[in-house]
Design a protein around this nucleic acid. Structure first.
Length: 390
RNA sequence: GGGCAGGUGGCGGAGUGGUCAAUCGCACCAGACUGUAAAUCUGGCGACCUUCGGUCUUCGGUGGUUCGAAUCCAUCCCUGCCCA
């Protein structure tokens, strides 16, 4: 369907660093990803409530898909026949597919975990399925994602140290198996695919260090940090991020999975993270939360009923150029579909602006300064509300 | 004029002698949401007291019966439908 030039290309260029913060470019057959970058989450082959053309307009350079969900529905057959996930959903830029490891964790009552893999029951029809590290590579070959993720076990928080250790050992063995299957198989649709490993180890530095070292020895094209932002305090998350990024090679992209709030993202960029994904801008948006340069607002609050300003004066999204807070609040309260779309597009636009502004700042050697100012700004809305209440 | 059915918290609508400040839904007011089983979930929603809890005034009006009434009786007012 698309005429890509297959070059077998995947590389990461570190363009500039300021302290540990990095600006770089990931090159893939389907396009470049300028880091730090935020990846909108499109679990089921769609970023909920957002059109593909809107993703292009807001400057999304890569989106996520989910192996677990797409395998269950519509199924690998449909996607292979469509010519891969890109063709199926008509998204020609890069896609990263998560392995389903997070579903094993979040749908934990469905799992049966052993050395071989994980047995789970479909949340759709209760049928039983098994994911193995190899099987998940095969599925992602069929999906045709540009960046594939290894199957891992995402441990909950809090997590017993011994369990975290054993779980991590299993995740490491799975990573080696995934790597092997990856080497033995080829892309199906003419574009290079690459495989990222996932560092686990819960909140235990020594396990995290071991995990990172072992995975680096296996030499992946990129490294993710998983098992964070699962309920632990933010400073624990930052500390673990520091621990892990200290070990990961500078020449490979680092992806902090599932993070996070705008503040989390800035703090993590400062610690050397290049890639992020999170459902927060879309899910919370659908639930009435809007992110702005001066903090988050819950548009359902009565305070906005007569607020005829845009959500964010400086935002370039369609909603902010066109509608007022009062009108959008009305749409949300009235359960209008447009509200879901406007919220999702706005929040993603904001997140993409945030990471691109961070990137600009790093390239200009003023990230530190810009970041502290931004962190301050991000709490003004909340302060305003609190002031009004008292 | 007669017959029937009704009048319950912002609305709809349960309850038909004590466990009722009163089920539930909506509306309203807040909160939550971090590799999406989420256009979802949780809490609040008569007044007052600082919370556990407690106090007070409520179920059309008035007056009764009763240890005790939203629930029973009388009467008045109002609403809907039917007959004249």
């Amino acid at each position: 369907m698309f005429d890509y030039f297959y070059s077998g290309l995947f590389d990461f260029t570190l363009q500039h660093s300021e302290g540990k913060a990095r600006a770089g470019v990931i090159r893939t057959d389907r396009g470049e990803i300028r880091t730090p970058m935020f990846m909108p989450v499109g679990t089921q082959g769609t970023v909920k409530a957002v059109e593909q053309r809107e993703l292009h307009e807001m400057g999304a350079e890569i989106i996520l898909g989910n192996t677990y969900h797409l395998y269950l529905r519509p199924g690998v057959d449909v996607i292979e026949n469509a010519g891969g996930l890109h063709a199926f959903m008509n998204w020609r830029k890069p896609i990263l597919t998560d392995s389903g490891g997070y579903q094993v964790f979040s749908l934990s009552d469905l799992r049966g975990l052993d050395e071989e893999g994980v047995v789970f029951k479909s949340h759709l029809d209760g049928s039983e399925h098994k994911f193995t590290p190899e099987g998940v590579i095969d599925i992602q070959r069929s999906l045709g994602s540009d960046i594939m993720m290894v199957l891992d076990e995402c441990t909950p928080y809090p997590c017993d140290e011994e369990y975290a250790r054993q779980s991590n050992e299993l995740t490491l063995r799975w990573a080696a198996r995934a790597r092997e299957r990856f080497e033995q198989t080829r892309p199906l649709y003419g574009c290079e695919q690459t495989l990222f490993a996932i560092v686990q180890g819960s909140t235990y530095s020594w396990i995290r260090e071991r995990s990172a070292r072992k995975l680096v020895e296996m030499d992946f094209e990129g490294y993710a940090i998983g098992g964070l932002s699962v309920g632990e305090p933010a400073d624990v998350m930052y500390a673990i991020t520091d621990t892990v990024t200290a070990i990961l090679p500078e020449t490979k992209p680092r992806y902090l999975m599932g993070v996070g709030t705008p503040e989390n993202i800035l703090e993590s960029i400062e610690r050397g993270i290049d890639l992020f994904d999170c459902v927060m801008p879309t899910r919370n948006g659908r639930n009435g939360m809007f992110f702005t340069r001066s903090g988050r607002i819950n548009i359902k609050n009565a305070a906005y009923a007569l607020d005829f300003r845009p959500i964010d004066e400086q935002c370039t999204c369609y909603g902010c150029r066109t509608f007022t807070r009062a009108y959008i609040r009305h749409l949300v309260k009235a359960n209008e579909i447009l509200a879901l779309q406007l919220a999702s597009v706005h929040n993603l636009t904001f997140y993409l602006w945030l990471v691109s502004a961070a990137r600009e700042a790093i390239l200009a050697e003023r990230f530190q300064e810009w970041k502290s100012e931004m962190i301050k700004q991000l709490s003004t809305e909340i302060q305003t509300i609190e002031t009004n209440v008292t």
